[in-house]
């Protein structure tokens, strides 16, 4: 292992990691918004929109992110929708992640028994109040494990961004391997940086899951 090489290219990886993190988090935020809107539409069974959401979810869940990105980045400009690579990465991640987030939220909402709603109604709460004070707080905490799993999944998926020439960690590693043949060092740094990105949230995820599974409210 050539430590000199590692130290020399550490800043390059660091920069790439920030890019991964920035685009990843931005994409995840949009995915959360898309997921929230979709699950609300499904929960309230809004006609027409509900069917559109169903089609979107199937399309998004049954195609790879890489193909989605290729279509957005190389395909859409041909019909006049031009974006830069970063916006494209965010859009792709939101398109993919939106359906996963929607499913996570939906399973949380569905886990709340309808009689909880009735119980709130019988206290004179309206639909809005019931949603805000009774359904959402419970549904949110039920979907936390699935939500965290999705965040990890989406951060991992960002590894394909190099295919649309975003200079992320994969791009950097591939570049260095190609340029200097320092395969071991480049891959070592790649693994280390992904561990730094993913390990904390993965540990947080399993802690949360354990806490929710064994304790529940009031622990």
């Amino acid at each position: 292992m050539n430590w000199e090489f590692i130290l020399k290219y550490l800043p390059m990886y660091e920069k790439a990691a920030w890019l991964t993190l920035r685009i990843g988090l931005l994409g995840i935020v949009f995915a959360i918004i898309v997921g929230f809107v979709c699950s609300t539409i499904q929960y309230y069974k809004v006609p027409v929109l509900r069917q559109i959401v169903a089609v979107y979810i199937e399309l998004s869940r049954n195609t790879p992110l890489l193909v989605q990105l290729f279509f957005i980045y190389y395909g859409l400009p041909k019909i006049g929708i031009q974006t830069n690579a970063e916006a494209c990465g965010v859009a792709g991640l939101a398109f993919l992640g939106g359906s996963y987030m929607a499913e996570a939220f939906r399973s949380g909402l569905e886990a709340i028994e309808p009689i909880q709603t009735e119980s709130a109604y019988s206290l004179g709460m309206n639909r809005c109040q019931t949603m805000r004070y009774i359904i959402l707080p419970q549904a949110m905490s039920i979907s936390v494990p699935a939500f965290v799993a999705n965040v990890i999944f989406l951060l991992k998926e960002t590894s394909v961004f190099s295919a649309i020439s975003l200079m992320d960690l994969m791009f950097t590693a591939k570049d260095l391997i190609g340029l200097y043949y320092k395969t071991t060092e480049s891959l070592f740094l790649l693994v280390v940086f992904y561990l730094i990105l993913l390990l904390p949230i993965s540990i947080l995820g399993s802690l949360l899951e354990r806490r929710l599974r064994y304790a529940g409210f009031g622990a």
Binding site: I152, K156, E157, T158, S159, V160, M170, A173, K174, L187, L190, V191, Y194, L195, L198, L199, S202
Partner: peptide, 11 residues
Amino acid sequence: RIMPQLVLLFL
């Protein structure tokens, strides 16, 4: 499980 599959492929 924590590594992106692409990283595994590269490795």
